[in-house]
Design a protein around this nucleic acid. Sequence first.
DNA 1: CCGCCAGACGCAACTTCTTCGCGTTAAGCT
DNA 2: AGCTTAACGCGAAGAAGTTGCGTCTGGCGG
Lengths: 194, 194
Amino acid sequence: MSTRATTRPGGRSARVQQSVHQAVRELEAELGRDALTVPLIAARAGVTPSTVYRRWGDLRELLSDVAVERLRPDTPPADHGSLRADLEAWTVQFAEEMSSTAGRTYIRDALVGDPEQGNAARCSDYAAEQLKALGVRAAGRGEAVPDVETLLDVVVAPLMYRILFRPSDLSAAYTDHLVATALGRTAPLSPPKS
Amino acid sequence: MSTRATTRPGGRSARVQQSVHQAVRELEAELGRDALTVPLIAARAGVTPSTVYRRWGDLRELLSDVAVERLRPDTPPADHGSLRADLEAWTVQFAEEMSSTAGRTYIRDALVGDPEQGNAARCSDYAAEQLKALGVRAAGRGEAVPDVETLLDVVVAPLMYRILFRPSDLSAAYTDHLVATALGRTAPLSPPKS
DNA sequence: CCGCCAGACGCAACTTCTTCGCGTTAAGCT
DNA sequence: AGCTTAACGCGAAGAAGTTGCGTCTGGCGG
């Protein structure tokens, strides 16, 4: 967990955390996220509400923790033989996952639930790790690889900005444009809108 | 307001909205944002809590509306004689305001309070308007101006991404780097962290 | 200018959530 | 195995959120 220092990671505490997280996922699937309440989750998890309040503080922090887990990539990025192909595929998948209704909700939950922003930083670390893996693989092929910081600035940040602040358009042409820019503007496509 | 269609913009409704917004600002300054509750705000505004709930739905949406108002730029960007100087000054000010504790709180409130994301879009529109004004002025001087979309991608998005997801570093060197990149990489400064 | 209509508000009762103190359980450690 | 203490369960008290109904007022047509 992130919002509190877990001093006792084993035994009952771990079981409680797991059952509560599972209860959140189940109830979210059954009733929708807006219907979630702490007493409801606690009942499903077989726990008293006060336990949830004491461990997580409030519903937002709990949802933030669960959201970060769901945003964690489960597999390393696919290998398509070249940095460009790998980065394009990763960007498309990233954009699709994050711009979906569920993805946007998870991002916003992760962002807002943690006062210390540790969960938000974790989201960024996930993307950085994936990009790092792409870079290492490309370097192994002898390709020149852009800095991870640069990729975050040029690819991830614009995508996230649009997802969070401009719910309108995330076309494939736009993601292609971002990747092309990141790889040294080999494709001179101008920004899509104007 | 954004979250509901205001069918009666005049008279009592307008007074209620104004007094509620003012109560939020006052109580936030006096007690801190975490101490705000709907009954408290309603009492200060001279209104019953049910009125607030009916008009705004819940505390988050109300805070979202207030946050957007506070994020609205009150003055057009200052004129420093050249696009580069204007953009640098604007970016520095933008970064300072948005990365402050209060600024981050307003951004997150604006982001999360409105299910339709209309308030988030408004934030982006504010930045776009400012950048547009810069561009128009530069064009009047005969300067070549980058597209507003490009500026959002290259300057605003990376700043916002760092503010939201990476609470660590927002150095002056970094903002300079972003502006230089936007204006055709006249300054070959590499990203700060690498 | 007057009266009608409808949206918005106040009030109050009700439900649900949230907090807190206290006793109990069980992990971790020696 | 015994001790210490963080973590949990329970229950009560307080606060927040919800809803129905009557009243008020701004907007609109006559």
